[in-house]
C-alpha cells in the first residue's frame, strides 16, 4: 500500500534516524533535488550504510536517484541496490531514460546476485512524460507513477497554484493510465507544510480522480494523507451494508438486491468489496472505527 511516501534528504542523519516512525507507508531516500552537488557523494555513502544497518519493519523503502543526464546514476544505483530496497524512484522520466535505467538495473542485479527484481516508480514531471504516460505505465518494472507538480509546471512554463487546476489533466491522465495498468498512482507533494487544511483539500482532489496515495515532504503531513487515502467512515459503513445486502440476496436465491431503494449490481458490489479490502489493509475495520 502506498498511501503516503515520505521524502527524506539522503544527507540528513537525524531525519534518517526517525524516517520510519511516523507511519508513512513508504519512505523515499532522496539523492536528487534535496542534496546539493557538493553533498552527493556523502549522501550516497550515508544512504548505503543506512540501508545496510537499519530495520524498516513494514515500511517500504525506495531511493530517488539522480537522472541519467546527471552522470551520477550509475554510482547511485551501484551504492544503494540491495535486498531492502523495493523500488528506484526515477526523476524526469521518459521512455528513453527508462530503457537505459532498465538495462543498468538488469546488469547490476546480475552482478550483485540480487534475489528479487528492483521495481521502478518513475516521476512524470515533464510534458513529454505526460504524453508518454500510457507507455510508461506498462513499462517493465514500473509499479507506480508519481506526479511531479513543480517540475511539470516549470516545464510547461505555467504557474503552480494552490488550487492546482493546472494539474487537472496530468492527474487525470496518470490516474487512468495507472488504473489500466494495475499500478499505483501517487500524487505530487503539497509544498506548504504549515497549511494542514489546504493539504487535505489537495489530497481529496487527487483521491477523487483515482489516486491511491500522495508523496509528502514533512512528517506532519503523513497523518492527514493516510487518513484521506484510507476509506472514511461513510464509505466503510456503505460498503459493509452493500456486501451484507448482496449476501442476503444470494442466500434468498435472488439475482439482484437493493439498498436504500438503489439496485446493487455487480460493479457496485465489487467497489464495496475493494473498499473493505483497502480498509483492512489500512488497519481499519474494527468496531471502534465506526464511531
Amino acid at each position: 500500500m502506498r498511501r503516503s511516501l515520505l521524502f527524506i534528504p539522503g544527507n540528513n542523519p537525524a531525519m534518517l534516524q526517525n524516517a520510519d516512525v511516523f507511519g508513512a507507508d513508504g519512505i523515499i531516500l532522496d539523492l536528487e533535488d534535496a542534496v546539493t552537488v557538493a553533498e552527493k557523494d556523502a549522501a550516497r555513502e550515508l544512504v548505503k550504510e543506512y540501508l545496510n544497518t537499519w530495520e524498516f519493519g513494514a515500511t517500504e523503502v525506495m531511493v530517488r536517484v539522480n537522472g541519467l543526464s546527471s552522470g551520477w546514476l550509475g554510482d547511485d544505483l551501484d551504492a544503494v541496490l540491495g535486498d531492502k530496497l523495493t523500488a528506484i524512484v526515477y526523476p524526469k522520466a521518459d521512455l528513453a531514460s527508462l530503457r537505459e535505467l532498465d538495462r543498468i538495473l538488469s546488469e547490476l542485479e546480475r552482478r550483485k546476485g540480487l534475489a528479487k527484481r528492483i521495481g521502478v516508480v518513475p516521476i512524470v514531471e515533464s510534458a513529454t512524460g505526460v504524453v508518454e504516460t500510457d507507455a510508461i505505465a506498462t513499462f517493465p518494472r514500473v509499479g507506480g507513477i508519481l506526479l511531479g507538480g513543480e517540475d511539470f509546471t516549470a516545464d510547461m512554463e505555467i504557474v503552480r497554484t494552490r488550487e492546482g487546476a493546472e494539474l487537472a489533466y496530468p492527474r487525470a491522465k496518470i490516474a487512468i493510465a495507472c488504473r489500466a495498468a494495475g499500478i499505483d498512482a501517487i500524487d505530487t507533494p503539497f509544498a506548504d507544510v504549515a497549511d494542514a487544511a489546504a493539504l487535505e483539500r489537495d489530497a481529496r482532489v487527487a483521491k477523487s480522480l483515482g489516486f491511491g496515495g500522495k508523496a509528502v515532504i514533512h512528517p506532519n503531513q503523513i497523518e492527514i494523507v493516510n487518513r484521506v487515502f484510507a476509506p472514511d467512515v461513510t464509505e466503510l459503513r456503505w460498503a459493509r451494508r452493500v456486501v451484507a445486502a448482496a449476501a442476503d440476496a444470494r442466500k434468498k436465491g435472488l439475482g439482484a438486491s437493493s439498498l436504500d431503494g438503489k439496485m446493487i449490481d455487480r460493479p457496485v458490489e465489487l467497489r464495496a468489496a475493494k473498499i473493505l479490502e483497502r480498509a483492512a489493509a489500512c488497519g481499519l475495520g474494527g468496531p471502534d472505527d465506526e464511531e
Binding site: 526517525n18 516512525v21 511516523f22 507511519g23 514533512h218 512528517p219 506532519n220 497523518e223
Partner: peptide, 11 residues
Amino acid sequence: TRDPVGLKIAR
C-alpha cells in the same frame, strides 16, 4: 514543539 517526533509521541 513543532518537532515531528515530539508531535507523534503527543498524538
